[in-house]
Design a protein around this nucleic acid. Structure first.
Lengths: 252, 252
DNA sequence: CGTTCTATTGAATAACGTCAAGGACGGTGG
DNA sequence: CCACCGTCCTTGACGTTATTCAATAGAACG
């Protein structure tokens, strides 16, 4: 396992200069909030693709916001079966799932070179005290994550493989688009069909067959890592994904 | 749909007198915290079994802590397929999943007569301001919920039906035991096999067959609603459920 | 004691997984 | 430039798991 030595970098972008804030999905913060956030932030770091950020059973004393790059969060069973819980994109806040004294119960691995802002977990209570509003935002983000997992639970439990794939691809595409990763309706998906299979709870072979059929039905195109949907509305409808839902959220 | 008219009751147990606090799973609060919590609490209410507390697409301006009774949270697809996200037991804090301005994306229904403490969602920010520590607890609870869902996602995606059932039953039994619902190693499970099937993402028929086999293998007994495991360690091992994990948590 | 849920079981069918074998593609070294 | 290799993708054949359909038995409830 390629466990990364995390090193804080002196270079530190002030949060009000964060390029991600230009994305309209993110709720604007007041100047005071931005200062506070900048103060809470202790550094940045960058890792290559394929790096393990957290490992199951390892503690982390930091929280992260993804600046750029893709990663994924997963759990495994003893015999190696892997379930990808979610993909992690720029703007996502991670690390909350573990507590001060508890071990991480999942692993996080990068798919591409990626960079992160880091926040010290120890100062979270202080941070909460200084801005109840931002504290509420953190809680809100945790609750939002939970809602996303609710939906995936519904997928894994009750949607057919085809619906599930349609839902997930629509979901991923929209998420990527929100943070400016789409160019002319195309998004680079930096993962393999095996990753997708592990997210959908399907075998690789079956995932491939379903993907081929979705392609044949002109609902998706995914070649050389580049994804687009010739019929996003149709894809979303098949998967039961709500394209209209408001997705505004805070960015920490 | 039997949507309940929620009525606040004058009668109001102070939080420091809450009988649930005697359970050792719950982290003790300071006197100041208990006062603050009592102040945040605006009332109690009680509903019969089979009542719909929240409905998909309906807003709620309250948060709840379950005082007694069982409920479950679920989502449905248009054609009626239902996925139970989780069961809700005494001590559970619910309602955080929706936000001030967003609609509920799930429903909650009681399985038994149940009573709840209610907190006004509008005053949550004020509550956060007055105790960063309790604010952190709320966040922590949300993050903990997410960890539980992670594990269920792993179950639905990667565990066989048999493992999944074993995991879930062990999980439910331990949760019930934690809040004092076990009598001589037995817990009343107030739901049907259909509910369990909807939680496991399986059909009723298959759930029944697996249950019968677990019974034959002397891992579970579940008759007339009364559940026990003659071999909890074996059940947990089959399901990959960690009996040793620390489960202490705050109670709000 | 009927009526209505709920649980149980067998049989037929559909969905999905496993095994196995190629094919496409990009990188690497000669 | 080309042979070689590794990774990922693709496809068919076949086995397993889970679903659906159908029918009955058992409990719970007036």
């Amino acid at each position: 396992m390629n466990l990364v030595a995390q090193f804080a970098v002196e270079y530190k972008v002030p949060c009000d200069k964060c390029p991600l804030r230009d994305c309209s999905v993110f709720r604007p913060l007041s100047d005071g909030e931005l200062d506070l956030l900048s103060d809470f932030k202790i550094g940045e770091f960058k890792v290559e693709g394929g790096a393990t950020l957290f490992a199951e059973g390892v503690r982390s004393d930091q929280l992260f916001t993804v600046l750029q790059g893709w990663a994924f969060r997963y759990k495994t069973l003893e015999d190696g079966r892997r379930q990808i819980i979610n993909f992690i994109l720029p703007g996502d806040f991670i690390g909350l799932q573990s507590t001060l004294d508890a071990e991480m119960e999942h692993s996080v691995e990068t798919l591409t070179a990626a960079s992160f802002c880091t926040f010290p977990r120890k100062r979270l209570t202080d941070f909460f005290a200084r801005s109840p509003r931002l504290a509420f935002d953190v809680t809100w983000l945790a609750a939002r994550e939970e809602r996303v997992l609710d939906e995936h639970l519904l997928s894994l439990g009750r949607r057919t493989a085809r619906e599930r794939a349609a839902y997930y691809l629509a979901h991923l595409f929209v998420r990527a688009e929100e943070v400016g990763l789409a160019v002319e309706g195309r998004v680079r998906f930096p993962f393999t069909q095996q990753h997708l299979a592990d997210a959908l709870g399907l075998s690789l072979v079956h995932t491939n067959k379903i993907l081929r059929r979705l392609t044949y039905d002109q609902l998706v195109e995914w070649e050389h890592g580049l994804f687009r949907s010739p019929n996003l509305a149709g894809l979303a409808e098949l998967g039961g994904f709500d394209l209209e839902a408001r997705r505004e959220r805070p960015l920490l």
